[in-house]
């Protein structure tokens, strides 16, 4: 049965159904409804909701709760995500699984509260210190976002990594019908063999991102890199939309990709064969597939709600095999289908 839901609420309910029983958060627009939903919902499912004193505290609460091997999550928006970067780096180093929702808004600084995609660098290249990665998933509809929550937790535990679901204020605030995912049973979730639960009848366990001996720390880092390599090999996801006969392929993710789907149909009606390549995992980025595609298409247009962040990954994938163009609006301005179509026309004519 489909339900009419707000993006933030659909994501929250999907997380509960995925077995998350520990939510820590701090109010920030445009995602406060997610925090509010959890405040109401967690007690109903015997879970824990805690409003922290800051995003700095939130991410460290997440660190502590994740140490116990439970499914934990938080949600925030851009300025809050910046504050969490310290803890994110520590969690990555301690190989702790957790799920973050970043509902991006216009920046930099206080910016505004409208949709944006300008946290791409921060999410995919590491906003905190050190050589770490986090898995970044970018849904383009509420349905896709809700359907991703269980997978996000599975990936987090499979690889002992952080997973960020990167959406923008549009997906966070919009309402549309959603088929909620099935319930997973929390009792079927096995406690990981690294969890800190008290050394009862076993040797004490330590979970840290720390070793003062550079050779030991290097070993830890090489282990992280091995994990990242596996993720890059196994977990890349993307969608191809009408690219087979395209004379120009647009690369876009999230809300922008959704707008581009409309543009593809518009353009085809006026005789321009446009396709869409939509990365679903922003890290790992689908370099290989985009590289293949770029061999057979003359023009590639990257469209983002930023001034060209994913563009750098697109260029790395294409490596000169086709012409890479860019169109972007940022600071909370959402590009219209007409604007995008105009920029396509400029390229193909």
């Amino acid at each position: 049965m489909k339900m009419l839901m707000k993006g933030t609420e659909a994501i929250a309910e999907a997380a509960v159904r995925a077995g998350c029983r520990l939510y820590f958060g701090y109010p920030i627009t445009p995602q406060s409804e997610l925090t509010e939903y959890m405040a109401k919902r967690m007690p109903e499912v015997k879970g824990t909701f805690l409003q922290s004193e800051s995003e700095v505290a939130t991410v460290n609460m997440l660190y502590g709760a994740a140490c116990t091997g439970r499914k934990v999550m938080t949600s925030t928006s851009s300025p809050g995500f910046s504050l969490m970067q310290e803890g994110i780096s520590y969690m990555a180093g301690a190989e702790l699984p957790a799920v973050f929702i970043n509902v991006m808004r216009g920046g930099p600084g206080l910016g505004d509260i409208q949709p944006s995609q300008s946290d791409y660098f921060q999410s995919t290249k590491g906003g905190g210190h050190g050589d770490y990665r986090m898995i970044v998933l970018a849904p383009h509809t509420l349905q896709e976002a809700a359907g991703m929550m269980n997978e996000a937790f599975e990936l987090a535990f499979k690889y002992r990594m952080l997973v960020t679901i990167l959406v923008d204020g549009m997906i966070g605030q919009m309402m549309e019908p959603v088929e909620l995912p099935k319930w997973t049973k929390p009792e079927e979730f096995a406690e990981p063999d690294w969890a800190l639960t008290g050394a009862n009848g076993r040797k004490p366990r330590k979970v840290t991102s720390f070793d003062l001996d550079p050779y030991e720390l290097e070993k830890m880092n090489l282990r992280y890199q091995e994990t990242y390599k596996k993720v890059a090999q196994n977990e890349v996801k993307y969608e191809e939309f009408k690219i087979e006969d395209a004379e120009i392929t647009v690369v876009a993710y999230g809300t922008t990709a959704r707008i581009v789907k409309t543009v593809v149909d518009y353009a085809r009606k006026s005789g321009i064969k446009v396709g869409l390549f939509r990365p679903i995992t922003l890290w790992p980025f689908p370099y290989d597939r985009l590289s293949e595609i770029s061999k057979n298409v003359k023009n590639i247009l990257t469209v983002e709600m930023s001034y060209g962040q994913m563009l750098e990954d697109v260029k790395l994938a294409v490596l000169g095999k086709s012409n890479v163009h860019f169109y972007g609006r940022s600071a909370g301005v959402v590009p219209t289908p007409v604007e995008i179509l105009d920029s396509i026309k400029k390229i193909v004519r």
Binding site: L22, A57, T58, N60, L62, Y63, G64, T68, L196, K206
Partner: peptide
């Protein structure tokens, strides 16, 4: 200290130990 005690343990970021402990206590 996490290594000097024969207990389960972690190291928090500078100053954040009470938040880390909060997360643990709320979970367990």
């Amino acid at each position: 200290a996490y290594n000097f005690f024969d207990l389960d343990g972690t190291v928090a970021a500078h100053g954040r130990a009470p938040a880390v402990a909060t997360g643990m206590k709320r979970a367990l």
